[in-house]
């Protein structure tokens, strides 16, 4: 469209630059704090320009938080969530869309409702389940009287136990138990033309072959979008690992380490707050998901809009 609006154009840039400054300023301040030493970062006028200590601070913060194994743990959990989610969502949506059985809508709604309550809201009982993931089945066994029956018959009392505290499985499974991706796939599968299914059946392809040879190649962009969203989601988990991982030395996650770096009475013993280390660690923790989001921007934006989450 040809429109001459020099004043408005100038104004647009001014507004956008102000907005950009507001968005970037906090991170800039954190970055600058990470480049100064203890004294400079604690003197009254806040530093606005970077100093020379970035590398030293990052090394010290890395050692202090023992980030090496924690980055590995976080990466394992994030990849576990991504793979689990992408696979589960895909096969669930496939079953819901390409088969016609009774109770399909009921199951759809059962899965759909899980979108309503995020993990944070039901955190206390979910923790109890993580302490013994088989407890639901134990309770059902006891309540149904089946356990009593088994006991009288064989003399053995069934006690199911599967403790998920301090384990990768415990980190990953509850994060996978949402409907987020199922809907992304369902939306896409619904747009796949009937003719494609008919052609596949005509050629004698079973459902699994159709899924593998036709649908998965078609849904590559979906997978990329979902993977990005789930990676960021898993990497940034805080409350859940804070609760179920008490053995931080072996299973700690990077984001949780930040809570130890909060400069308060506990960490500095009333001494000078070590902001430079806290900010250096914050930057390191932020970087991987930011890099992924920027790198995957095109797919990620589309996926986010289609999943509504």
């Amino acid at each position: 469209m040809i429109e001459r609006t020099p004043i408005l154009n100038f104004l647009t840039h001014v507004i956008l630059l102000i907005g950009l400054a507001l968005v970037i300023f906090p991170i800039w301040l954190a970055f600058v704090a990470a480049t100064h030493d203890l004294r400079a970062v604690n003197t009254a006028p806040v530093e606005l320009l970077p100093g020379p200590h970035l590398w030293a601070n990052m090394k010290e913060a890395w050692a202090l938080s023992d980030f090496g194994p924690k980055f590995v743990n976080t990466l394992i959990v994030a990849i576990g969530v991504v793979v689990g989610k992408v696979t589960l969502a895909c096969i669930t949506a496939f079953s819901l869309v390409f088969f016609n059985y009774r109770g399909r809508m009921l199951i759809f709604w059962l899965i759909f409702i899980t979108l309503m309550l995020p993990l944070e809201v039901r955190i206390v009982p979910t923790y109890a389940v993580a302490a013994n993931a088989l407890s639901p089945f134990q309770v059902m066994l006891d309540a149904s009287g089946l356990n009593g029956l088994i006991e009288t018959l064989s003399g053995i009392r069934v006690a199911l136990e599967w403790n998920l505290l301090n384990s990768y499985t415990g980190m990953i499974l509850p994060l996978v138990a949402t409907a987020t991706g199922t809907f992304l796939y369902r939306q896409f599968f619904l747009t796949v033309p009937d003719e494609l299914v008919e052609a596949a059946r005509m050629d004698g392809a079973g459902p699994l072959r159709f899924l593998w040879d036709t649908l998965i190649p078609l849904s590559k962009t979906n997978i990329a979008a979902l993977a990005t969203i789930m990676f960021v989601y898993a990497w940034n988990q805080y409350l859940w690992p804070l609760l179920i991982i008490t053995d931080r030395a072996n299973y700690g996650m990077v984001v949780v380490q930040l809570s130890d770096l909060v400069p308060d009475q506990f960490s500095t013993g009333g001494g000078t707050p070590t902001w430079h280390l806290a900010m250096a660690a914050t930057l390191m923790v932020m970087l991987p998901p930011i890099a992924i989001v920027i790198f995957m921007q095109r797919w990620f934006v589309r996926g986010l809009i289609n999943t509504d989450k």
Partner: peptide, 27 residues
């Protein structure tokens, strides 16, 4: 157009339902 309903449909559905039962509905 659908595939013929078979045990595959149930099998594909089972993991998701199991997980949301244990980690969503039960809690």
């Amino acid at each position: 157009a659908y595939f013929k309903t078979s045990w595959i449909a149930a099998l594909l559905l089972a993991p998701q339902l199991l997980i949301i039962f244990v980690f969503f509905y039960w809690p």
